[in-house]
């Protein structure tokens, strides 16, 4: 990036500028700095208040006890978030397994194979997937996906019951449906970031591979993929971050059962969904509210860690070559 030549006000320019104008500049600088600082302050306040409100539940059960106890029992005021954590992990992993290959394939096709006339249209359509609101995916999931997929799920469950976590009675809302909807919801971000990463592969290397007689696919395998592995990994991590935190669509299709299901076609719960569902019923100031906010805190830490890893991968590969970090965040 080109640096602006920072014209010092004291040299040449100063004589032309009035004292008042310079004062205004100082005020501008400081008010902008104060805005920036106050944004940081609000964020800090955000974390502190969440932590304070979650504290009663966390100290009552202990931080580890809260996370690892497999018992979320509202009626008896026992709050162990393990079923929620497990549900969040299962649905997110299903989303990654289903969504990431599709998203990367789509990104590769758009950047390497699609005719140039179609390229921007395809990219636009992929981005529009993100424009559909979460609650609409949920609505679609409840009334279309769940009933339409149930026979297929039951067949799969019966036929492949020798696989781990498969077999037995399929319930309508379940981990798999939630994971499937999450997969759809993370495709746009994973494929958008992957496209940005793929676009940074130097043209000479691609042309070099082709000139040596490689087919398009060999060019992708030999020149494009090795160059973009780190970027694509962090795209997947960003997708994982999205999947972990997604609330409304999952709340509608997860089944809201705080007991860990035996197979992926069983009902479950996630951290975000339990907050969305139970917050309205909980009495303000109760242990229940505190536990829900503690669940929110666990959710926050999970997403921050995942996004931090994504950012770390990008920054590390960034040092080796051109800057793609900015694009990964949008």
């Amino acid at each position: 990036m080109v640096e602006v030549i920072n014209v010092p006000h004291t040299v040449s320019g100063a004589r032309l500028k009035s004292r008042r104008a310079l004062q205004a500049d100082v005020i501008l600088r400081w008010s902008l700095r104060v805005t920036a600082l106050s944004m940081l302050a609000v964020l800090g306040y955000f974390f502190v208040r969440l932590a304070i409100t979650a504290e009663p539940a966390l100290s009552h059960f202990g931080i580890l006890g809260f996370i690892f106890t497999n018992n979320w029992d509202v009626a008896h005021n026992i709050f162990g978030a393990w079923p929620l954590v497990v549900g969040t992990l299962i649905t997110s992993i299903v989303a990654l397994v289903l969504g990431v290959p599709v998203a990367i394939a789509a990104a590769l096709y758009v950047t390497e194979f699609a005719p140039s006339r179609l390229r921007s249209t395809l990219a636009l359509l992929l981005d529009l997937l993100a424009a559909v609101p979460s609650v609409v995916y949920g609505l679609w999931g409840v009334f279309i996906l769940i009933p339409d997929l149930k026979p297929a799920e039951q067949w799969f469950s019966n036929t492949f019951s020798f696989l781990p976590f498969v077999g037995g009675q399929v319930s309508g809302p379940n981990y798999f449906i939630a994971g499937l909807i999450l997969a759809i919801m993370i495709i746009p971000i994973v494929s958008a970031v992957s496209r940005e990463v793929l676009a940074t592969v130097p043209l000479q290397e691609k042309e070099g591979a082709l000139a040596l007689g490689a087919t398009r696919w060999e060019m992708i395998r030999l020149a494009v993929l090795p160059r973009s592995r780190a970027g694509i990994t962090s795209a997947a991590m960003l997708g994982l971050g999205r999947a972990i935190g997604e609330t409304i669509a999952v709340t509608l299709v997860i089944g809201s059962s705080p007991v860990i299901g035996h197979q992926i076609f069983n009902q479950g719960y996630t951290l975000a969904a339990v907050i969305a569902n139970e917050f309205g019923e909980a009495t303000p100031g109760s242990l229940h509210i505190s536990a829900l906010i503690a669940a929110g805190l666990v959710l926050l830490v999970l997403t921050l860690v995942v996004n931090g890893i994504a950012r770390g991968i990008i920054i590390r590969s960034d040092r080796r070559r051109g800057s793609i970090a900015d694009k990964a965040v949008a």
């Binding site: 290959p101 599709v102 394939a105 096709y109 398009r216 696919w217």
Partner: peptide
Amino acid sequence: ARWALLAGVVLAL
């Protein structure tokens, strides 16, 4: 490979 990647686009959309 070309068809597989195209399938990705179709599945995504």
